[in-house]
């Protein structure tokens, strides 16, 4: 295969990997603090994208000639704040209440919540049952190297995503809040004995995980210039898989898993150019094999730091 095509695939793969990593981080954070799977997390990404779109309608209605950068900043803030608040409310009213029941009940309840979110957007968002165009808010510049085109907007999105992941890393490893989150993940009861307000830490963790998902939603919209009510379904399945391959509870594992999954998809598309529609089948198939080979994830619990 020629080099420019390879470069193109690599760049696309990295973009997808970043989005998957951002979704997977949420799954792994929630599992870290509460030992549960929040199945609606993919649909929360979708809500993030639609919240940003709503922000776009609203803002351009008031200030029609706002600059792209300013608008991007504001609709990202709107999306992140709305979705973070949603995550906290979900944790408070539903997930913390389900703690006394089996984790399976949480799985089921959040699965149903995902359906509710999807259907609510489909039915109540104006024209929600059709794909919606997402505003173009990044300069349409690109550089060409032979057949390979590097889009400037992809570079920006990738850098923003990387910055978000680095901030999250610093938050978890260097701050007192991060230490409390790690303590709760390792031993909830002892964390409480040290004076950690468990409920508060859980709510903050849900705010953080949901905010990151909202950003992934905005990123998705900007990258594809289109969003739809069902986009969270596959993203959720992929984010969950990525978190599992990385060893649930491990943030770095989840990030690695996200990029690995994107790599598999890309590999599938490259290896089977005649049937690139099968790239997901290929990627999920490999995930199943990885799970059978390393049931506790690629990064073993012993050497890895959970959350």
């Amino acid at each position: 295969m020629d080099i420019s095509l390879l470069a193109q695939f690599t760049v696309n793969g990295l973009m997808l990997g970043m989005m998957y990593a951002l979704v997977a981080v949420g799954f792994t954070l929630f599992f870290g603090v509460l030992d549960i799977i929040v199945f609606s997390h993919g649909d929360v990404v979708m809500v993030g994208a639609f919240a940003a779109l709503t922000g776009h309608y609203w803002l351009t209605g008031i200030y029609p000639d706002m600059s792209m950068w300013v608008e991007l900043f504001f609709i990202s803030c709107i999306s992140i704040i709305t979705v973070a608040a949603f995550g906290m409310i979900m944790a408070k009213t539903m997930i913390l209440r389900l703690r006394s029941a089996s984790p399976l009940n949480t799985l089921l309840a959040t699965m149903m919540l995902g359906t509710v979110l999807r259907e609510a957007v489909r039915l109540f968002f104006p024209g929600g049952s059709n794909p919606k165009p997402f505003p173009v808010l990044l300069p349409d510049i690109s550089a060409s190297f032979g057949d390979f085109t590097l889009r400037f907007d992809s570079v920006i999105l990738f850098v923003l995503g990387a910055l978000l992941i680095v901030s999250l890393h610093l938050l978890i490893t260097k701050t007192k809040l991060g230490m409390a989150i790690r303590a709760v993940a390792q031993d909830e009861e002892t964390a409480r004995l040290m004076g950690v307000n468990f409920t508060l830490i859980v709510l903050i963790t849900f705010a953080i995980g949901s905010a990151v998902a909202a950003f992934a939603g905005v990123m998705n919209g900007l990258y594809y210039n289109e969003i739809n009510f069902g986009m969270g379904l596959l993203l959720g399945a992929i984010g969950f898989s990525a978190a599992i391959i990385g060893g649930l509870g491990n943030i770095y594992g989840a990030i690695l898993g996200g990029f690995l999954f994107a790599g598999l998809q890309t590999l599938g598309a490259v290896a089977m150019p005649f049937a690139s529609a099968y790239k997901d089948v290929f990627a999920f198939g490999v995930v199943i094999l990885i799970m059978a080979w390393k049931p506790t994830g690629l990064i073993a619990e012993k050497t890895s730091e959970r959350v």
Partner: peptide, 10 residues
């Protein structure tokens, strides 16, 4: 606490 309960990965 009983059983020490150190945070193992800290």
């Amino acid at each position: 606490p009983e059983g020490r309960r150190v945070f193992p990965k800290m």
